[in-house]
Design a protein around this nucleic acid. Structure first.
Lengths: 384, 384
DNA sequence: TGCCTTAATTTCCAACGGAAATGTAAAGTC
DNA sequence: GACTTTACATTTCCGTTGGAAATTAAGGCA
């Protein structure tokens, strides 16, 4: 029912196809270092089990020799559900083996009680399951639930969730009981990072950071093909890097946190102070800034500067190949893009400045997709 | 001549013994997950080749059963030379397989010309070789040269060394020609981190950071048993984290760098400003601070605060199990220890504050030892 | 049609490591 | 003191894995 039990070479072949799309067997051998014979031997049972399939010939005609046959992952072979829990709603997606969304659905949460949330998850999963109940892949192979906070994926416990005020909740087990689907849980940012690592802007990179800017500011760090978890479950806390000066106080009690300057909430609040309008919304602030209001523009510039410092910190410490910037805040990205890049270029040390900065708008459905990716990982990346 | 060619299980057995001292075969099996039979089979040729040896019985008497036989790495099996290049001298050590120093020696550098330095290295190596030329291990198995700056260990090139003003120097090849010893080069901080990872305060940890405070401020990061190199060769640049406010300008041109506040040079300069004594030395500043001079104490406190912010940044991003603080600055560590810990505790987010802070005075000989460790790695950690 | 080239498969085989039986060396027991 | 128990260590046997190399396949080209 999964790749577990397949020899390492077969897993390698499958992962290579996942990350690098259709390839010929010969090309797989070159990329993985496996001998041609080993590739054929690994691929045969994978094809027999429907995990991969032949998909024709390469388009680019080459001069001579026997033409290659491309093989690719058969995405329909397995389906997964990913669910992201926020403070007031659930976002769920039904996705295939490559975490491509097939359907998505939201559900409001009227209570943050554990039992209620678990039931709501079970209902949402059932609805998604009904949405597309055709074809061979009848069953859902796995469910990945993601949530912000301190999550221990090994034991399946949510150690602490600030938004829901949960502590030591054995969520994986509870959801698995309620849905009868093998369930994994993971921190939401790490799950999103896993999705990008396998199927997104991080595929094939030796290291990258995924920074999310929104109500909170966080990051997932992928180094050498693994997403860093932190020895104590905490890592990638970009939002609490102390680079922001002493003017504003963060929810964590400190001054200087990036989050205290550049989160959507912080920007709104500063725009209110700048304009004197205590009712100003984020949207209005964006409009004012676009219209050229110098005070509001200054707020965005300052936020951009602080984010630039945070990204430079990441680059100086980790030296990632790429930093992906995403989040709700990206909607108004044009307002601080220049400042981010300028400050980043100034403060990234030496060759760390060669780090590639890309922007990707990742809506909440993408976050739920992260859950599906984590669940799918159980199939193709056994026992790490 | 090395462990290359040995099966993976043998390498694993050897590495386990390197990191965790004498163990019984049964215990090795438990720790590595190998079957008892595999451990015996791996250990036999290692013993025959003199890499490991039986060292008697465990002291703690257990109730019953056949007593275990401990095996341990035979450190004398191979010898390495490590050399650290600074702006004005070479520090060299002769070390055994566990990077334990057998002899050490320094040599002044009167020129920073590449050819001159290479010759000086060759002379230093020859002197160390003569120092202890007895016993079976006649030859030096490897040489590790370390230097601060951008070093590409793969190609053996020093891409850029600020202190020596070198660019794209194929140092490994030059030194290897001059000494006829297999040579590897590595960034000095990363080499020190490798030494700590295998033989020091980082042995067996899932992740740790080694922060060095001195003329410069840097760090090596070890995650999952690998020292992070950065996609562009830059990583661990703690010294240029922008957490230090806007008062002082760094050599890199920016304000806010940790190095601009907390390097020995920066502390001396600030102490001079504080006292009005333009000739004040670091030693005098330390003395004044110990005597209670409030202005000078303030300088140390501020430096400690800035270092604390830097360590908190490392903890928030990586979440290491431990942070090792070292460097010349550690001599006066008592002056800012409290402030470092206080600021770290304040700004480390959530469980990141559980990170263990330890102080280790690592003199320059230890840095040279790092070179030996990197060279030794070639023997016991093949082809990563 | 034969030849060349590259892809893919097949065959053969060495080695790696697990399972389990066997051997070994102590303590405990009556 | 013989016997049992216990845990360490070794040996034997065997399934699996993946590489080497020979073989087959499928096209272009002269």
């Amino acid at each position: 029912m999964s790749l577990t039990g397949q020899p390492p070479a077969a897993v390698l072949v499958f992962q290579t196809l996942l990350q690098h799309g259709p390839l010929s067997r010969a090309e797989i051998g070159r990329r993985t270092g496996l001998s041609p014979g080993a590739v054929t031997k690994s691929a045969t049972p994978l094809i027999a089990d429907g995990w991969i399939t032949e998909v024709g010939r390469p388009t680019a005609e080459r001069a001579n020799g026997r033409p290659a046959t491309l093989v690719a992952v058969r995405a329909a072979r397995a389906r997964f559900v990913g669910v992201k829990i926020t403070g007031d709603e659930l976002i769920g997606v039904l996705a295939d083996l490559t975490a491509r969304p097939l359907a998505s659905r939201r559900a409001a949460l009227d209570s943050r009680d554990v039992g209620t949330v678990v039931l709501a998850i079970a209902r949402l999963v059932q609805q998604l399951r009904d949405t597309a109940d055709v074809g061979e892949a009848d069953a859902i192979h796995g469910l990945g639930v993601t949530i912000s906070g301190d999550v221990d994926g090994q034991t399946g416990h949510v150690q602490y969730s600030p938004f829901l005020n949960w502590r030591r909740v054995p969520l994986a087990q509870l959801v698995e009981s309620a849905t009868a689907i093998p369930t994994v849980i993971e921190n939401d940012v790490r799950a999103l990072t896993v999705a990008e690592q396998w199927f997104g802007a991080g595929a094939g990179l030796s290291s990258f950071a995924l920074v999310t800017v929104g109500a909170g500011i966080g990051a997932g760090l992928s180094v050498g093909g693994r997403v860093i978890s932190g020895a104590h479950g905490v890592a990638g806390e970009v939002g609490h890097l102390p680079v922001g000066g002493t003017e504003r106080t963060c929810t964590c009690g400190n001054t200087g946190c990036v989050e205290a300057v550049a989160s959507t909430h912080a920007i709104t609040e500063q725009a209110r102070q700048a304009t004197g309008d205590a009712e100003l919304t984020m949207e209005e602030a964006v409009r004012l800034a676009h219209a050229g209001d110098p005070a509001v523009r200054g707020v965005f510039t300052h936020a951009g500067h602080t984010l630039g410092l945070a990204l430079a910190s990441v680059a100086n410490l980790i030296g990632p190949e790429r930093i992906i910037i995403s989040g709700e805040g990206v909607a108004s990205y044009d307002l601080f893009a220049d400042q981010i890049r300028q400050t980043f270029a100034d403060h990234a040390f030496g060759a760390a400045a060669d780090c590639d900065l890309v922007v990707r708008s990742l809506p909440f459905e993408e976050w739920a997709r992260g859950g599906a990716a984590v669940a799918a990982q159980r199939v193709f990346a056994p026992a790490k």
